[in-house]
Simulated assay, not measured.
Amino acid sequence: MKYIRSFPVELVFWVLALVLLATANPHEHHFSLCPLANLGITWCPGCGLGRSITALFHGDVNASLAQHWFGIPALLLIGYRIYQLSKQLLKKEFKLKY
């Protein structure tokens, strides 16, 4: 029960999100979770961010910038957050064992 409370949900979420974006096809239309897009509004400040990160994973920087200008900084921020959470988890695991 103790492990369930300390399960790193945020770390798993970010890693899984990046894995899914890395394996997605950037040229394929996909379902959007954006509530504005689902309501039929054509402009949203966040739309294209996932496609931008997907294009980065596929090495297409120009397409990434065309989809959303914040794709590169977002990927760096998510990567840094994964690093922080991993470091915190390893520190906690090391402290519990020894």
Score class of each variant (00 low, 15 high):
residue 71 G to S: 03
residue 46 G to A: 15
residue 78 I to T: 11
residue 34 C to H: 13
residue 13 F to M: 12
residue 67 Q to R: 03
residue 23 T to A: 12
residue 20 L to D: 06
residue 81 R to I: 04
residue 14 W to H: 06
residue 45 P to D: 06
residue 94 F to E: 12
residue 58 H to W: 13
residue 87 K to L: 10
residue 98 Y to N: 11
residue 84 Q to E: 14
residue 7 F to T: 02
residue 44 C to T: 08
residue 54 T to F: 05
residue 6 S to F: 10
residue 61 V to D: 09
residue 70 F to I: 10
residue 52 S to C: 10
residue 64 S to N: 01
residue 98 Y to L: 09
residue 40 G to C: 07
residue 12 V to N: 04
residue 72 I to C: 10
residue 29 H to I: 11
residue 68 H to L: 02
residue 94 F to W: 09
residue 66 A to K: 01
residue 44 C to H: 14
residue 97 K to L: 10
residue 50 G to F: 04
residue 33 L to T: 11
residue 45 P to Q: 10
residue 82 I to R: 02
residue 2 K to R: 15
residue 38 N to H: 07
residue 81 R to H: 12
residue 15 V to H: 00
residue 10 E to A: 01
residue 78 I to M: 12
residue 29 H to Q: 13
residue 80 Y to W: 08
residue 75 L to G: 01
residue 56 L to T: 02
residue 4 I to S: 14
residue 67 Q to C: 05
residue 21 L to E: 00
residue 12 V to L: 13
residue 57 F to N: 06
residue 51 R to L: 13
residue 22 A to L: 04
residue 33 L to R: 07
residue 22 A to G: 14
residue 71 G to V: 03
residue 14 W to L: 14
residue 16 L to P: 06
residue 57 F to Y: 15
residue 86 S to D: 04
residue 66 A to N: 02
residue 49 L to D: 00
residue 96 L to W: 05
residue 67 Q to N: 11
residue 97 K to H: 12
residue 46 G to S: 15
residue 4 I to M: 04
residue 38 N to Q: 15
residue 70 F to L: 14
residue 9 V to T: 07
residue 79 G to C: 06
residue 95 K to I: 05
residue 12 V to A: 12
residue 52 S to Y: 02
residue 47 C to G: 04
residue 96 L to H: 10
residue 18 L to I: 03
residue 77 L to S: 14
residue 51 R to G: 00
residue 22 A to V: 00
residue 89 L to K: 15
residue 87 K to R: 13
residue 41 I to V: 13
residue 96 L to V: 06
residue 48 G to E: 04
residue 46 G to F: 14
residue 98 Y to I: 05
residue 74 A to V: 05
residue 75 L to E: 09
residue 48 G to L: 02
residue 52 S to I: 08
residue 3 Y to F: 05
residue 74 A to S: 13
residue 70 F to T: 07
residue 73 P to I: 09
residue 32 S to D: 05
residue 58 H to G: 06
residue 58 H to F: 06
residue 46 G to W: 09
residue 38 N to I: 04
residue 82 I to D: 01
residue 8 P to K: 00
residue 85 L to I: 06
residue 51 R to K: 12
residue 60 D to P: 07
residue 47 C to E: 10
residue 50 G to E: 11
residue 18 L to C: 08
residue 67 Q to I: 00
residue 44 C to E: 15
residue 34 C to Q: 11
residue 68 H to K: 00
residue 67 Q to T: 04
residue 33 L to K: 11
residue 4 I to L: 14
residue 44 C to F: 04
residue 75 L to R: 00
